[in-house]
Amino acid sequence: MMPNWPALILSPLLALANLTALYALVTPSCGRQSTGAMQWLSAASLLLSLLFTLVAWRNQRRLAGSLASDAASARPHFLAQVAVMVGLLSSLVLFAMWIPQWIVSPCVS
Protein backbone atom coordinates (compact mmCIF):
# COMPACT_ATOMS: atom_id res chain seq x y z
CA MET A 1 0.00 0.00 0.00
CA MET A 2 2.97 2.30 0.46
CA PRO A 3 3.53 2.98 -3.29
CA ASN A 4 0.18 4.78 -3.44
CA TRP A 5 0.94 7.62 -1.07
CA PRO A 6 3.36 9.65 -3.20
CA ALA A 7 0.81 9.86 -6.04
CA LEU A 8 -2.06 10.42 -3.64
CA ILE A 9 -0.50 13.12 -1.46
CA LEU A 10 2.78 14.36 -2.91
CA SER A 11 1.61 14.90 -6.50
CA PRO A 12 -1.05 17.50 -5.54
CA LEU A 13 1.40 19.12 -3.11
CA LEU A 14 3.97 19.19 -5.90
CA ALA A 15 1.51 21.04 -8.13
CA LEU A 16 0.87 23.63 -5.43
CA ALA A 17 4.57 24.01 -4.63
CA ASN A 18 5.33 24.39 -8.34
CA LEU A 19 2.77 27.17 -8.66
CA THR A 20 4.23 28.98 -5.65
CA ALA A 21 7.80 28.63 -6.90
CA LEU A 22 6.84 29.79 -10.40
CA TYR A 23 5.30 32.96 -8.96
CA ALA A 24 8.51 33.56 -7.01
CA LEU A 25 10.61 33.09 -10.16
CA VAL A 26 8.70 35.60 -12.31
CA THR A 27 10.62 38.69 -11.19
CA PRO A 28 14.12 37.15 -11.51
CA SER A 29 13.18 35.62 -14.87
CA CYS A 30 11.93 38.96 -16.14
CA GLY A 31 15.10 40.66 -14.95
CA ARG A 32 17.27 38.16 -16.82
CA GLN A 33 14.91 37.91 -19.81
CA SER A 34 15.16 34.12 -19.49
CA THR A 35 12.57 31.54 -18.54
CA GLY A 36 15.12 28.74 -18.14
CA ALA A 37 14.66 28.27 -14.40
CA MET A 38 10.89 28.28 -14.75
CA GLN A 39 11.04 25.74 -17.58
CA TRP A 40 13.34 23.40 -15.66
CA LEU A 41 11.19 23.63 -12.53
CA SER A 42 8.03 22.83 -14.47
CA ALA A 43 9.67 19.94 -16.31
CA ALA A 44 11.11 18.45 -13.12
CA SER A 45 7.79 18.78 -11.29
CA LEU A 46 5.88 17.13 -14.12
CA LEU A 47 8.37 14.27 -14.41
CA LEU A 48 8.31 13.67 -10.66
CA SER A 49 4.52 13.62 -10.61
CA LEU A 50 4.47 11.20 -13.54
CA LEU A 51 6.97 8.99 -11.72
CA PHE A 52 4.75 8.92 -8.62
CA THR A 53 1.78 8.08 -10.83
CA LEU A 54 3.67 5.31 -12.60
CA VAL A 55 4.59 3.69 -9.28
CA ALA A 56 0.95 3.84 -8.15
CA TRP A 57 -0.21 2.45 -11.50
CA ARG A 58 2.20 -0.48 -11.25
CA ASN A 59 0.92 -1.16 -7.74
CA GLN A 60 -2.67 -0.98 -8.97
CA ARG A 61 -1.89 -3.47 -11.75
CA ARG A 62 -0.24 -5.81 -9.24
CA LEU A 63 -3.23 -5.62 -6.93
CA ALA A 64 -5.70 -6.18 -9.78
CA GLY A 65 -4.44 -9.73 -10.19
CA SER A 66 -5.12 -10.62 -6.58
CA LEU A 67 -8.67 -9.33 -6.22
CA ALA A 68 -11.06 -11.44 -4.20
CA SER A 69 -14.80 -11.14 -3.76
CA ASP A 70 -14.78 -9.68 -0.24
CA ALA A 71 -14.75 -5.93 0.30
CA ALA A 72 -11.75 -5.90 2.64
CA SER A 73 -9.39 -7.21 -0.03
CA ALA A 74 -10.78 -4.76 -2.60
CA ARG A 75 -9.83 -1.69 -0.56
CA PRO A 76 -6.10 -1.64 -1.44
CA HIS A 77 -6.96 -1.93 -5.13
CA PHE A 78 -9.46 0.92 -4.85
CA LEU A 79 -6.93 3.09 -3.03
CA ALA A 80 -4.40 2.36 -5.76
CA GLN A 81 -6.93 3.35 -8.43
CA VAL A 82 -7.66 6.61 -6.61
CA ALA A 83 -3.92 7.29 -6.30
CA VAL A 84 -3.47 6.79 -10.05
CA MET A 85 -6.35 9.15 -10.84
CA VAL A 86 -5.08 11.83 -8.42
CA GLY A 87 -1.58 11.49 -9.85
CA LEU A 88 -2.89 11.81 -13.41
CA LEU A 89 -4.96 14.86 -12.50
CA SER A 90 -1.98 16.49 -10.78
CA SER A 91 0.22 15.75 -13.80
CA LEU A 92 -2.40 17.27 -16.09
CA VAL A 93 -2.53 20.38 -13.90
CA LEU A 94 1.26 20.67 -13.95
CA PHE A 95 1.29 20.36 -17.74
CA ALA A 96 -1.49 22.94 -18.06
CA MET A 97 0.49 25.36 -15.88
CA TRP A 98 3.56 24.80 -18.06
CA ILE A 99 1.87 25.70 -21.37
CA PRO A 100 1.62 29.50 -20.76
CA GLN A 101 5.37 29.62 -20.12
CA TRP A 102 5.92 28.68 -23.77
CA ILE A 103 3.66 31.48 -25.00
CA VAL A 104 3.70 34.41 -22.56
CA SER A 105 6.79 36.31 -21.44
CA PRO A 106 7.24 36.64 -17.65
CA CYS A 107 7.54 40.40 -18.12
CA VAL A 108 3.95 40.81 -19.33
CA SER A 109 1.95 42.58 -16.66
Rank of each mutant, 00 (worst) to 15 (best):
Y23D: 11
S11K: 04
N4T: 11
A7Y: 02
N18L: 04
L14W: 01
Y23E: 09
L19R: 09
A96T: 06
V108W: 05
L89G: 12
L47Q: 13
A37F: 05
L47H: 14
Q39N: 01
P28G: 12
A80S: 15
A71T: 15
W5R: 07
A44K: 15
R62T: 04
S91M: 02
W57T: 00
N4V: 12
A83W: 00
G36E: 09
V84T: 01
V82M: 02
V93C: 14
W40T: 07
S91Q: 03
P28Q: 12
G36S: 10
S29F: 08
N59H: 03
P28F: 14
A96Q: 01
R75N: 00
S66Y: 12
S45G: 08
L25Q: 05
G87F: 05
I9G: 00
M85W: 08
A71K: 13
A44S: 13
V82I: 02
Q101R: 10
L67P: 01
D70V: 09
V86H: 01
P28T: 09
A68I: 02
S11R: 07
V86N: 07
A7R: 03
A74E: 15
P106I: 09
P28V: 11
G87S: 12
M85C: 07
V84Q: 01
T27D: 06
P76G: 03
Q60R: 09
L88K: 02
L13N: 13
V84G: 01
Q81W: 15
M1C: 03
N4E: 11
A37K: 08
M1W: 10
V55E: 04
L50P: 00
M38R: 12
T20M: 10
F78A: 14
W40L: 06
L10E: 13
S49H: 00
L54I: 06
A43L: 09
Q101T: 11
M97Q: 12
L88H: 00
S109E: 14
G65K: 07
S11H: 04
V82E: 00
L13K: 13
G87K: 04
L48W: 08
A72I: 11
V104M: 15
L92G: 15
S90A: 15
A72L: 11
L63D: 03
W5M: 05
L92V: 06
P3N: 06
V93F: 07
L47V: 10
P106A: 09
Q81H: 11
I99A: 06
T20N: 01
G36D: 07
A71V: 15
P3L: 08
F52E: 01
L8T: 08
G87Y: 06
W98I: 01
L19H: 08
P28I: 12
A24I: 04
R58C: 12
A68K: 03
S105W: 13
G65V: 03
G36Y: 10
S66W: 13
